[in-house]
Write a protein that binds this DNA or RNA. Structure first.
Lengths: 341, 341
DNA sequence: CCATATTACCGAAACGTTTCGGGAGTCCCG
DNA sequence: CGGGACTCCCGAAACGTTTCGGTAATATGG
C-alpha cells in the first residue's frame, strides 16, 4: 500500500508538497500537480483514512441508528431508507453504517458511545417524533445530524421534509369541495411529526369550511394494508356515522380501504370517496388502483440525495439555514373521488 | 474528549502504562489497573479509533457490498441479512457498513477501493455463485472475508453454510419412499451454490432409487411465490407429464405451488405432494400452511452469529479450518405428502 | 550475599496524514 | 538597483494510540 512518503521519494518532492498537490492547494505548480496525480494513480495510492482522520478529527463515517423491533425486517420504509442512503453516501465518498440497537437499549447511550470514539462524524435521524429525544440530545451536544422529516419544536438543525400540513389540508379540501362533510382520516402513528401535521391540516380544512371536527372519524396506526382494512370496517360498524370519504396517510392504507369497500359491498367512488398521500413506491402505483387513486404525490426517492448532501455539507461547516427544506408536492386528481350524492 | 495523555497526567503514570492497563497487559499491577479503569470511566475516556487503527492497521469496520438492482428493496433475504449482521457485528464492537454499488459498477473495483484506504478490515460475501469472482479476488489478494454459503471450488476461506446437498437428497428421498416417481424440482436461481447442491442431492436420490432424471421436471428462478405459481401451472400444461410431487427450494415457492393447486383444482396431498426447504421466516410459517407443509428446517437466524464471529476471529488470525461449518437441519414430516395413488 | 528472575514501570519511536511557519527564487515597478 | 509581491517549495510538529527496548526495584534460590 503506497503512502505519501513513497510518492515523495519516487518524485523527489517533499511529503508536504505531495499532500498539498493531491488536495488541490494553490501553492503547488500545475505541472507538479499533474506529475503527482499521475504518480499517485500509477502507484495505486489511496489515502489512509485513519491517518487523515486522526489529524482532521473526522472519520468520513456517518450512521443511522435504529432500535430493533420485530417488524423491522418487514418495514418497507426503513429498508428503502437504508438502501438509498447507503447509495447516496457512497457517492459522496462517505461510509454509511447501519447500527441496529437492541430492542431494550438506551438509544441515547448508543449515540453517545458511537460519537465518543471519534469513529463517527454524524447521524441521520429518521421518523422523528413530535418531540424527539434523539434530536434533543444531538442538538444540545453539538453533534452533527440531519433529520428525515422534522420535529414540532424549533428547527435549529438540517432537515428535509415535505409540507405535511398542506398534504392534510389539500386532501381534505378536495373532498370538501366535492360536497363531502363526513370525512374520516386514517393517519400514520400518533406522535410522529408527519402524522401530527397532517392531522392539523385536516382539521384546518374542516374548520375553514365550517365543518365540526369529529374525533370518532380520526384514527391512526402503522401504515399497513391491514390498518386501512380494519379501520374502514370499524367505521362501518358505527353505521349511522359511516363517512362518505376517507383520507389515507399512505397508499398502502388506501389499498386496505379498497379491500374493505369490496368486502362491505361499497363501490368507490359512488359510495365512498378515497384520497391518499403517495410516496411513489415502485411496486404500489396509485394510478394502477381500480378506480385510480386521487393523491398528493411526492416521491420519497427525491429525498435521499438532499438528505445525504445536507449532512455532508453540515459537516463541512455550512450554515444550517441553507440545509433545510420543506419540499412541495403535486396534487393528482383521479377517479377515486366523486361529488357526494 | 479525554485522551490517554489526560489520564496519564491525572494519575501521575506514564501514557504507556495507562494504555497497557486498559488493554489488560500483564506487566501492570492489579492495583494500577483498577485505578486506571476507574479514572477512565470517571473522565469518560473512549479510545480514539483512528489513532488505534493507524498504528494497528485495523479499522474495526467490516462491510457487505451489494450491487444494486431494482428488486433489491423487495428482497427479503437481503434485508434479513443486513439487519441481522448489523446486530451481530454491533455486539462484537465492530462497525458494519452496507455498501450498495451502482448497478453497472465493477464490483471487484469497489472491493479494491474500499480495502485500499485501510478503512475496512474485511467483508461478508453473501449468495455466492458456484464459481464466484469475488471470492476468487478476495482470496488471491489475501483480504479477509467470510462467506454466507460457499462456492463449489476449494474451500480455503471461512464460511457458514447448511448441507444443501443433503437437503435436496432428503426431500426427494422422502417422496421416493412414498412411492413417487415423477418428482419435480422448483429450485433457486441457477449458478448459485445452494441451488446447485440441492439439484445434485435431488439427482443422487433419484439415481439411488433407479429413477431416470427428467430435465423437464426441473426448473429454477428467483425464489418467489410467483415462481411457484407459474412453474406449477407450466408443468400442468405439459399434461401427460404432470408430476405427482414437487420439491420446492423455499417456503415462498411452496406457497405459490399451493395457489396453483387451488387454481388447477388439485388437492394437496391427494393429487399432489409438496415438500420444501424452510429457512424459518417469522411471517411465513410452514406449519401454518393448509395442509401443513413437510420441510427440511434450518433457521437462517442461526447463521448470523457464527458468520459475524468467524469474520471477527479470522481478523484475529484464527486458522481457517476452525472457521468453517456446514450446519445440519431437521426433517419435519407434516401433512403435505401422501403415498402415491 | 551474589546472581538470576520477576514485577512494575517509563521514554521514544512509529503509524500516515495535514498544517504551520518559513524561505528561496523570480518578476515587476519605481 | 532596492524592495515588495508572488510562486513554489520544504522541515517539523501535531493528532492519539501501541509497542519496542530498557531500567530500577524487589523477590528467589543456592
Amino acid at each position: 500500500m503506497a503512502t505519501l512518503k513513497d510518492l515523495s521519494r519516487h518524485l523527489g518532492i517533499s511529503v508536504t508538497q505531495v499532500s498539498r498537490a493531491l488536495n488541490g492547494h494553490d501553492d503547488v505548480s500545475d505541472d507538479t500537480k499533474k506529475r503527482v496525480r499521475k504518480a499517485a494513480k500509477q502507484l495505486n495510492y489511496v489515502p489512509n483514512m485513519s491517518a487523515r482522520k486522526l489529524v482532521s478529527g473526522r472519520s468520513g463515517v456517518v450512521a443511522l441508528v435504529q432500535r430493533n423491533n420485530p417488524d423491522l425486517i418487514e418495514d418497507h420504509n426503513f429498508i428503502e431508507t437504508v438502501t438509498n442512503l447507503s447509495i447516496e453516501f457512497s457517492k459522496l465518498g462517505k461510509q454509511f453504517v447501519l447500527h441496529i440497537a437492541p430492542e431494550d437499549a438506551d438509544e441515547i447511550g448508543v449515540y453517545q458511545r458511537l460519537i465518543a470514539g471519534g469513529a463517527l462524524d454524524g447521524f441521520v435521524v429518521h421518523e422523528p417524533a413530535n418531540d424527539d429525544p434523539r434530536v434533543e440530545f444531538l442538538t444540545s451536544n453539538d453533534i452533527p445530524f440531519v433529520v428525515h422529516g422534522r420535529t414540532m419544536g424549533e428547527l435549529t438543525y438540517p432537515f428535509f421534509d415535505i409540507d405535511n400540513f398542506e398534504v392534510g389540508y389539500q386532501l381534505t379540501k378536495h373532498l370538501l369541495d366535492r360536497g363531502h362533510r363526513r370525512i374520516a382520516l386514517i393517519n400514520g402513528p400518533e406522535g410522529f411529526t408527519y402524522a401530527t401535521l397532517r392531522l392539523q391540516g385536516y382539521q384546518k380544512a374542516l374548520s375553514d369550511y365550517g365543518v365540526e371536527f369529529d374525533p370518532n372519524l380520526v384514527t391512526s396506526g402503522r401504515m399497513t394494508e391491514e390498518l386501512g382494512l380494519v379501520k374502514t370496517i370499524e367505521f362501518n360498524s358505527l353505521s349511522s356515522n359511516f363517512p362518505t370519504a376517507i383520507v389515507a396517510g399512505h397508499v398502502r392504507i388506501a389499498k386496505g380501504i379498497y379491500q374493505a369497500a369490496e368486502a362491505l359491498g361499497l363501490t368507490i367512488p359512488r359510495d365512498l370517496s378515497v384520497v391518499s398521500h403517495d410516496d411513489v413506491i415502485p411496486k404500489l402505483r396509485a394510478s394502477a388502483f381500480y378506480p385510480a387513486l386521487t393523491v398528493t404525490r411526492s416521491g420519497l426517492r427525491n429525498s435521499w440525495e438532499p438528505l445525504a448532501r445536507y449532512l455532508s455539507q453540515s459537516l463541512d461547516g455550512q450554515a444550517v439555514a441553507e440545509l433545510q427544506s420543506v419540499s412541495s408536492f403535486e396534487f393528482v386528481a383521479r377517479a377515486s373521488t366523486a361529488d357526494v350524492s
